[in-house]
Amino acid sequence: MDIEPDATVWKALLSACRVHGNLELAERAAKALFELEPQNAVPYVLLSNIYSAAGFWDDAARLRRLMKSRGVCKEPGRSWVEMNSTVHTFMSEDRSHPRTEQIYLKIDEIMIMIKEAGYVPDMNFALHDVDEEGKELGLSYHSEKLAVAFGLLFVPRGAPIRIYKNLRVCGDCHTAMKFISRVFQRHIILRDSNCFHHFREGMCSCGDYW
């Protein structure tokens, strides 16, 4: 580059490293971001996720300790659906909603049906050091999936299911939403921190680039 890359350039590169699993380049990009934006949680979280996806759990834990020691806080991921002037908010593995039992039963049904349609859980987004079954369950209960289960249960058929998320939608949830839109024949609109995703008939308006 003819000019010094700014934080936006380094974050784009770090995100690309997450997609391609390039750990060496990710560490370089993250180091640059630690200097440019020392209180921004994004590079810490992305690099920690890259370590976790590669199975380097000690490095991921070390990075989380570094975040804590520097007073850097990650905003918890939340998804919400507004219906009849009431906002229904979900966090990963959340069981606080009054309709929790119905929502979790619906998630079980969703996972069975989309797996039959070809969905395969992407364990690269299961970021806890647990067994394969535990990782798959953790993916199933991401906030986006809880929100869409609620939507399938209570949003009238024919109306779009509108979900909002304060962070970027994870790759596994993005894939699952495409399958859900086709299997259940619903239009799902997911607004994450980057853009609107319109899921219809197994496709997303973002073209899988966000």
Rank of each mutant, 00 (worst) to 15 (best):
D59R: 12
R78M: 13
Q39S: 15
E109H: 10
A117D: 11
V155E: 07
N84I: 05
S140A: 15
Y51L: 04
E109C: 08
A176P: 03
A60H: 00
Y51W: 06
K115V: 09
S85N: 14
M91V: 14
W80A: 05
P76C: 14
I112Y: 08
S143F: 07
R62M: 10
M111P: 03
A149C: 04
P38G: 13
E101P: 00
Y141F: 14
Q39F: 09
Y119A: 04
I180G: 02
P43W: 01
R182I: 07
V120Y: 05
F154G: 04
R78W: 10
G71H: 06
T89D: 11
I112K: 15
Y119R: 00
A61V: 07
G158C: 12
N166T: 09
K135C: 12
P98L: 08
M67S: 05
S96A: 14
N49A: 10
G134N: 06
S69L: 14
S96F: 11
D122E: 03
V72C: 00
G77Y: 08
R65L: 15
L137E: 09
K178M: 13
K165N: 02
H174D: 13
H88L: 08
I180M: 06
L137F: 09
V72A: 02
D122R: 01
D59Q: 08
V87G: 00
I103R: 03
P38V: 13
Y104P: 02
F184K: 00
W80M: 09
G71V: 02
F150R: 04
R168M: 14
E93M: 15
R168P: 05
G151H: 01
R70C: 03
F56A: 04
G118M: 11
R168W: 06
E75R: 11
H128M: 15
